[in-house]
Design a binder for these strands. Structure first.
Lengths: 233, 233
DNA sequence: GCAGGTATGTTTGCAGTGTCAACATCCTTG
DNA sequence: CAAGGATGTTGACACTGCAAACATACCTGC
């Protein structure tokens, strides 16, 4: 595609847009074979390029994965950042759901972001800042909720920890459940199978999130609206 | 040690107990260098044995990790199995704490159990059954709670999903926080840093667990005892 | 428009790895 | 005490990440 810039026979010395191709190929490769057998050489091969070409775009194998994860944090951060903190309780709900849904829609990137594939976060500055920004959105909303009195008067960071933990755990369950349901190739890169529990959660993540919210909210009454909406799936 | 079975000069052809040595060396190696640079050859070297000797004990590199994880599930399962379901609400509390504490005390094994290091769970039958038994204990307690009316009348599996998720997420936070606090070498095999939130949770996982319980329990009053006990750390 | 610089891709090479097959050594059990 | 299985060793192959040194194509200033 777009090899018109040099009139030759479709095979050009330069690939055209290798960086992007690598990122995408990497994604599909992980989705298919898992993160295990991933090799820059294989990626290069798949892109029809010499074995060490990728090193012109990524300092190391890790750097490629880190770039993918950073992309993910930016995307997730964007959708969380779009949530207004004006109405804190629904905002927390939306925030948590955004997280779970992102994981569901982008299992590979999610896996890179929150799994342990990328060993040393501290070696990728951009990754860290992206991750912090992401959590910052949740923190902002929680702080608003505590300030407005809608959430219980607790240390916002402690609340943040709880929410983060729940949501992170939920996402894991949902992903595995989805992957299994689809008999998909992702099945082998994820966590332990808590049997039907994960299917239950996956079927209605909103309800699980709501159950968590009940522990955070100052007055359970303010959940009535959300509860009614997600009553019976 | 115990090389007395052959009277020679302390160096024997046979190692004596390589399997165990490998498992242990593997653990410390992961704790130090992370799961990344782990190689059977290095392990063999460290055990003073030929590069391919480990294959007499483990079919593949993965099999070694799987064995370690299985060990972990057995241990965690044992402590969860010891919890009586007679008094369901405190039992859930204990169960959740047992999980978090196991993770805290055995970060490496926990990492193998719930991280994505072991690609294909389905290739290690024993691993799967161990994991299922583990979740079974939680399920048993939750079922008792629902039956006795102490927990809200929900699908036990859905409750299980929530608990599992929370507890799993909490454990992750606690581990990273601990690792960082200690400036420990574990720092590079774990998840994203949600800033001070994880420290807050790590400082008092009991409170986070309690907060979750509030969402599960039928009558908040039955938490009074636990709440008082963990009031202010 | 073209000389030179820079981004991109290639070739070559090294050290290290997982895994297999054939062989050596020891322990155990009859 | 000899046969046989368990354990450890040697050697080999294909593959990987990564680092130079080199080649090619695009781009920019003149």
């Amino acid at each position: 595609m777009n090899a018109s810039h040099h009139g030759d026979d479709s095979r050009s010395y330069h690939h055209g847009d290798l960086r992007k191709t690598l990122l995408e190929t990497c994604c599909t490769h992980i989705a298919n074979q898992g993160t295990e057998g991933l090799s820059l050489r294989a990626l290069a091969r798949e892109a029809g390029v010499s074995p060490t070409a990728p090193y012109r775009h990524f300092d190391s194998r890790h750097a490629l994965l880190a770039a993918l994860a950073t992309e993910g944090f930016d995307e997730l951060g964007a959708s969380m950042g779009a949530i207004s903190a004006a109405d804190p309780v629904p905002a927390v709900f939306e925030c948590a759901l955004a997280y779970v849904r992102y994981a569901e829609a982008n299992p590979v990137k999610y896996h890179l972001m929150f799994g342990d594939v990328i060993g040393d976060f501290s070696r990728h500055e951009e990754l860290i800042t992206a991750a912090r920004q992401c959590y910052g959105h949740l923190a902002r909303i929680l702080a608003a909720g505590v300030a407005s009195g809608d959430l219980r008067q607790d240390d916002p960071d402690e609340l943040g920890g709880t929410v983060w933990a729940v949501v992170h755990g939920l996402a894991g369950l949902v992903i595995t459940a989805r992957a299994k349901a689809a008999q998909a190739p992702m099945e082998d890169l994820l966590e332990v199978p808590p049997l039907r529990a994960q299917q239950a959660v996956a079927a209605a993540p909103e309800r699980a999130v709501l159950r968590m919210l009940e522990g955070l909210v100052a007055d359970p009454a303010c959940l009535a609206g959300l509860q009614q909406r997600w009553r019976k799936v």
